[in-house]
């Protein structure tokens, strides 16, 4: 990141090689369109290049900063294109094959996860499905509590409780994971 802050294009190239897969997966999870995800990924890395001077190591890790940026851009993109309906349709079509949906039963065909991913998934999998769903809709779809309540036909207070409990469990689980990672 320091290299990028000094205008070193090779440093950006290395950063891209290291993190493009993670960021692309995140974008794809939000917008469910391969070509749009690729275009957005390029825009996001360009923004990383342009905004690198604003990154502060004191405020977190580079990956966290990039993920925050990528998620915001992906959700903005989704809203701007008013693609909710289309994404919803695709999401429903893909549910059966979607390997990265949180709420699913593990299958033998599931690709072996990396250690880090497996550990994080392990924490997430301890949450009851309604909590996983609420967090999934909030984080990957950018939905508000009211939107989640409407979509899941659940009282607003219940959605709030699900989000609070689920996020606390994940947060606490991550603290324990840090020793293992």
């Amino acid at each position: 990141m320091k290299g990028i802050q000094t205008g070193d294009a090779d440093a950006l190239s290395q950063l891209y090689d290291r993190y493009n897969g993670i960021l692309k997966a995140l974008i794809l999870r939000v917008i469910h369109n391969e070509a749009e995800a690729d275009d957005l990924l390029q825009e996001i890395f360009m923004e990383i290049w342009n905004q690198a001077k604003n990154f502060s190591a004191q405020k977190g890790k580079p990956l966290g900063w990039m993920v925050t940026l990528a998620r915001r851009r992906a959700i903005d993109g989704l809203r701007k294109k008013q693609a909710y309906a289309r994404a919803e349709e695709r999401l429903q079509n893909e549910t059966e094959q979607q390997p990265d949906a949180w709420v699913h039963n593990a299958t033998e065909e599931e690709i072996v996860l990396s250690d880090t991913r497996a550990l994080i998934r392990k924490v997430i999998s301890t949450l009851p499905p309604p909590q996983q769903q609420a967090i999934d809709l909030a984080f990957f779809r950018g939905m508000s509590q009211r939107e989640i309540a409407a979509k899941t036909n659940t009282p607003l207070g219940t959605v709030k409780t699900r989000l609070e409990l689920g996020l606390k469990k994940i947060y606490d689980g991550l603290k324990e994971l840090r020793d293992e990672l």
Binding site: N20, G21, I22, A25, G64
Partner: peptide, 26 residues
């Protein structure tokens, strides 16, 4: 708390971008 962002992203299976994207970016 922003570590949650990182964790959610890492919970996904990485998706490879096309090589043309990197070429265009650089």
């Amino acid at each position: 708390c922003y570590a949650l962002h990182e964790a959610f992203a890492l919970s996904l299976r990485p998706a490879k971008a096309s090589t043309a994207i990197k070429e265009r970016l650089m």
